[in-house]
């Protein structure tokens, strides 16, 4: 079976985007922009296509880097292979909590 992939869009990124739906515990290969395998990881939960997982452990308040830029900060500690989204990231621009409240 073909290995599921996640791609790191910039070599400074600490998150990668999965290019397929992946299941908890499934082996995922993380590719750099050059196409090299930089990490083999097992997501700690199911993650759907287009969503992100962490490449390393992040402390609360640590910056989330994608495209080589800060896209937000961790609102709680995040372990390697964990799904990274609105439940554990705050935007510097619009607090996620405020966004949730508006919905």
């Amino acid at each position: 079976m073909k290995m599921k992939k996640a791609i790191q869009l910039d070599d400074r990124d600490n998150v990668a985007t999965v290019t397929d739906d992946v299941s908890k515990g499934e082996q995922v290969e993380v590719l750099s922009p050059m196409g090299e395998v930089i990490l083999d990881t097992k997501p700690v939960e199911d993650i759907i296509f287009g969503h992100k997982l962490t490449l390393r452990k992040l402390n609360k308040g640590e910056e989330i880097i994608k495209y080589g830029e800060v896209i937000g900060v961790a609102s709680k500690p995040i372990t390697v292979g964990e799904w990274v989204h609105t439940h554990n990231v705050e935007s510097g621009r619009l607090p996620t909590s405020e966004l949730e409240a508006e919905k």
Binding site: T17, E69, I71, H85, R93, T96
Partner: peptide, 13 residues
């Protein structure tokens, strides 16, 4: 958000 974009910074980037 459902598509995986977490913040406006990420979307615009």
């Amino acid at each position: 958000i459902d598509g995986g974009l977490t913040t406006i910074e990420e979307k615009s980037l």
